[in-house]
Structure formats: C-alpha cells, structure tokens
Design a protein around this nucleic acid. Structure first.
Lengths: 277, 277
DNA sequence: TTATGTTCTTCTCATATCGAGATGAACTCA
DNA sequence: TGAGTTCATCTCGATATGAGAAGAACATAA
C-alpha cells in the first residue's frame, strides 16, 4: 500500500497539497569500489561546508523528484546513482569509462537524526569499477579521490577506529562497511570480480582482485583450477599476455568474462569458517 | 553526501524551506511470508479506494517523518515496518505473536510513475513469520488475508500471468517476486527456515518449510543428515513429538533453533544448477 | 651471458561433501 | 490384524576442496 487510499484519484489530485506533509528528502549515495595497485579503493569526496565540513563522504545527492504533478524531470534511482557517479568522477556515464561499471542497490538508510538538518532517506548503491582515472573535484565537493579502504580503519560494526585521520561524515562508515561486506559476499557466488578487471585479464589478475577484496591470500593452483572449472566464469581469448609477472614467471593467458550470472559451485572464502557464529 | 552543503548549518536551518523542493513521499511495504498447510502464504490487504481499488496490495504505509525540525515523532524504517505489520494483522508488536518474526530490509522501489498520484519511494521489507492467526481488516484495508503465493501466478520477471484473479496493485508483483527470490536464497545459507517454525519443531517439519519455499521435494534422508551435520543449525530438546506423521511413521524428535547465524556448508537447492545462466 | 629467484600452470593425494538408494523400526489408518 | 507411510540411519559412487609438489617460462641482477 502507498498513500492515503480513502479518496478516489480525481479527488485526491484536486485536494492534495504536498505541503501538508512533513518534509522528507531522498538522496542516493554510492559506494564505488575499484582496485588500484593491488589494494581496494573507494571513491570519496571531501566536504567543503557544514555539516561535517572537512570530512570525507560518499558521493551522492538528491534524487530529482519530478513526478506526474511537476513535469517529466523525474529520475529513477539507478539513474540518479549513475549521474552522481559521473558528476563526481568527471567521467561520461554512457559508453564512456563508466560503461562497464556494475551498479546495484545496497540498502536504504533512514534513521532519524542521521542528517542534522532534516529527515533524509538515503538509498545507497554499490558500484564495481575497473581502474579509473583520478576524479576531478567537481560539483559540490572540495576534493575527490580514490582512497584505500584500509586507510579508513573500519570495524565490522560500521565504525572507524580511534586515531583514523580520514573521518567519514554522517553514517557513511556504516554504509561503507555494509558495502564492503556485500562485495565480499558477491565475489563468492557471482562472477562480478571480472567487473574490476578490464575487458581482458589473466587468472592471476583475477586472483589479485579476490585477494584485495577478501584481504587474504589464496592458493594460486587451486584458484586457477576453480576458475576454469566453473562453467561460464571466464572464457579464453586464445591470446597470451605480452609480459610475464612483475618479478618473473611465464606469460599468463588472457581471458574475458563468461556468460554465467552465478558461480556454481560457489567460490567460498577460506576465512568464512571462523566467522560463522 | 547528502543535502546542499553550500551553507553552514545555522544558515541552512534559518533559510531552509521544505516547500521549495519537489515533494517525495516515503513509505514502507512489507512482504510477510508464512507457511500454512504446507504452502507458502503472503499477507495481503485489499484496497477499498482508488487507485487500484479492489486489487490486492502488500501491507504498508507512510513513514512518520518528524525529524529535528518537527518534533520527536520520527520513526526508523524497521519500526515503521513492524508498526504496519502490527496494524494490518491486529497482532501486538512486542512480546506478542510478532515477537519471533524475522524482519529485514528487502529493497527500495522508486521508479517515477509507480504511484499515479505522486513520487513515492517505497522501502520494502521482508518478514518470516511462524503460523499466525487470520488478520483483521483494520486501518485502511477493505480486507486482509494470508494468500497462497501460488494463487498469484507470479512469473520470474515480476509480473502476474494473464487470467490470475487476484491482481496486485502498483509494482507489488515485482516486489513480491523479489521477496520470494530473497527468501529462497536466504534459506540456503542462513538458518532462517526456523523462523517459520514455532519454538520447537521436528526435522520433517523443517524440511516441509524448505519444500514450500523452494517449491520442490527434498530427499528426506539427505536433508536429515545435512541439518544435523551443520554446526549450530538446530539443537536437540531431548523430547519427542507426541504423534507420528500424518499417515503413519515413528514419532520424530523435537529440536529448536541453534545459535548459528550462517549455515556452513550451505544447504543449496537442487534446482539451482539449471538456473545459472 | 649466466645465475637466481619468481610465477604460471598442471598434477597428485587425502579429505569432505553430496546425490541416490536401501533398510529396519515405529506408527496410523482401514 | 494387515497394509502402507514415515523417521532415522547407513552405504556407495561421484564430485569438490585444501595442501603440497613440480616443470617450464620469464625477469632481474651479477
């Protein structure tokens, strides 16, 4: 059910005044993740004004409400997330570098008091991107950067450890922690790790994605066997990388993402066993 | 990031007028699932007024915005979901029959035009309940009932098959389909199937929950072995059911939910193999 | 050029898990 | 009392996983 059903529609439209209601703002925030230098990074912007001036925050902003009463400038939630991401990174949304970005809804955060100014409901999204250029501080942000996730001192409970220099505004530490946990889980049973790679990648590169997101080293041989044995995870390009590993070794073969949408059997992280309870 | 940061807070509070913004309404909807007579049921209410008068809908309603500007009647999203559930079922929220209900956020639906009256952002929740009494049509609803999910003719794409008598309002077929898929997945890797049972249950009863949600029969012997081998899934009460099966058989033993929060290894549904691509 | 160490890729082997079927005892219902 | 059902456990083959090993290809430094 949605708004007051005790009027028929014509009557509703005639008598309805949005100013009768308590105001609620709806925003989208984006947890955009990428891999740089083998480490997991998140896109953050630095706030130039109060509240939380000088602190870092997830990119985001208002959803354009529009709607049948106010014209056709209404915007769907995923579109708003892509727009915010494009504005903050300075990258073109369609066809450009953001074309191969995976985007999904993460969750909605609406506790009273999470924004000191008014009631704000934020629909958080999660994005997996291949390596992108440094963002340009456009729009509202004083600064924007890819920040190593490890540098934020996040705890499982969604807070930042005391002494962490880069503080996160609002409840964005909680949102980011939820996004990281979602990402870790998604890598287990979907082939989305390939979204962190370019169009072509090697199995060792794919393994480094898993290691960066999960924060633990994997057995190279078993990982290799697993990736090739799951149907539709990757498909061979027939080509070979033009260089060996950083410090030696043969040239690895090149693959691209397969057509599977789920990994079966899943690729479970080793540490999971201890976290069960 | 959230609202306009180009003012400091005091200035913002003085100059801010919510009437400057396009109006957005935020609602919560609840996909409440239970098992009745071995079949999966969902709680629905029948709409008495336009739009979608006479059609069925998920229980739900406005979030009480409140907030620092308007007093302390602000309401968190899960609280709003519990309140709507209590209002529609006529059951007491705390301590009562709703006490053991599992509730989690499902997703947020905000496409322009999903409500013909205005822009409505709906935060959908998913609830797993043990068998509850029939709801009383209270509040805004003309009627309320537990409806067998199979009777709604839902397709994977979130629509209702032509010819289905009970039509769902708004995009609630889509939301319900998403909720069902979430429920099916949750049963694989969490012990939440126990939330559909009472405090004590037998392993055959637990199996019938899986069969109702997944819509397929399971191998009784393997299911039994699996449930007992996963640490923390169930724990024995030492007691035995006072009656055998419906049509014979020995008296099954009684168990209660264990302390595990994740099933490891997971209990994967057999049909999954075909759906992968 | 040579030597050294690294990395990719494939194997082996022991262990764990799963699907399918079978069995005996306990129970309901006709 | 007899027939059929169900609970609970077991067996067996197939599959998946973790750990280690090994050869070949490569980068780098001497």
């Amino acid at each position: 059910m949605t708004p007051d059903p005790r009027r028929d529609e014509a009557e509703f439209l005639a008598s309805y005044d949005p100013r009768d209601y308590d105001p609620v703002a709806v925003t989208v925030d984006v947890v955009a993740l990428t891999i740089r230098d083998g480490a997991l990074h998140v896109l953050l912007v630095r706030r130039g004004f109060a509240p939380y001036a000088g602190m870092w925050a997830l990119p985001g902003g208002f959803v354009q409400a529009g709607g049948p009463l106010r014209g056709a400038d209404a915007e769907d939630l995923p579109d708003a997330a892509v727009r915010e991401l494009a504005e903050e990174t300075g990258l073109s949304a369609k066809g450009g570098a953001l074309g191969r970005v995976h985007l999904e809804q993460l969750g909605t955060y609406g506790s009273p008091g999470r924004d000191p100014r008014m009631r704000v409901i934020s629909v958080a999204h999660l994005a997996f991107a291949p390596e992108l250029p440094d963002p340009q501080a456009g729009g509202d942000a004083a600064d924007a950067a890819w920040v190593p996730v490890d540098a934020l001192g996040l705890t499982d409970s969604g807070e930042q450890r005391p002494g962490t220099t880069r503080r996160l505004a609002f409840d964005h530490a909680r949102i980011l922690a939820d996004g990281l946990e979602r990402a870790r889980g998604k890598l287990e049973y979907t082939p989305l790790a390939t979204a962190f790679c370019g169009g072509e990648f090697t199995i060792p590169e794919l393994r480094s994605v898993y290691e960066a997101v999960w924060g633990e080293e994997l057995h190279a041989g078993n990982f290799h066997r697993k990736v090739l044995s799951v149907p539709g995870f990757v498909e061979s390009t027939g080509a070979t990388s033009d260089r060996g590993g950083r410090r030696g070794g043969p040239r690895p073969r090149l693959y691209r993402a397969g057509d599977a949408r789920l990994l079966h059997p899943a690729l479970l992280r080793p540490s999971r066993e201890e976290e069960i309870r």
